[in-house]
Amino acid sequence: MATVPVAEGVFTFPSDDPQLIGSRCADCGMVTFPAQGSCPRCGSTGMEEHLLARRGSLWAWTTQSFPPPPPYAGPAGKDFVPFGVGYVVLGDEVKVEARLTEHDPEKLAHGMEVELVLVPFRTDDDGNEVVTFAFRPAAPGPHAAHQRGRQ
C-alpha cells in the first residue's frame, strides 16, 4: 500500500513541507489556484507555475456536517466524519478554499492563523491511501494579532 495524492499537480508531493501549486499571470500578476492556462482578470495565456504560502489566515468558514452527494468520494454513511471548510488568505496573493482539520465552531474564528497539512482522506480501489490538503489551526506567529472572538 502506497500513499498517493488526490490528484496530480494540486500540491507538491511527496514533500516534507508541502505547498499548493497555483499559477501566476506574467502580464498582470493575478494568482490562481489551482493552476490554470489563462488569466481570469486579463485573459492572458501567459500563466506560470507559482507555489503558494503554507500559512495564512482564515477569511471565511463553515462546517460540512453531512456527507456530500456524489461525486464526493470520501467516507460516507456511518464512516463519515464532519469537516470544516474555509477560504484561507495566502501570502496576500489569493484566497484558497480548503478543508479544515477542525470542525468544532468553538475552535474556528475569522482571521485565525492556519497552516497547510496533508491529511489521509480515503483508500482507493488499489488499496492506496489517498491524501488531500487541508488547513489546521497554527500557533499565532510573533506578528499575528487576530480577533479570535465571535459575536
Partner: peptide, 19 residues
C-alpha cells in the same frame, strides 16, 4: 477541477454557510 468534487467541496450549501 475534478478533485474539488472528490474531496467534498463541490457542495452549494457549504457556500451559503460560509457566506
Amino acid at each position: 477541477p475534478e478533485w474539488y468534487g472528490d474531496v467534498g467541496q463541490f457542495v452549494t450549501t457549504k457556500f451559503f454557510g460560509m457566506k
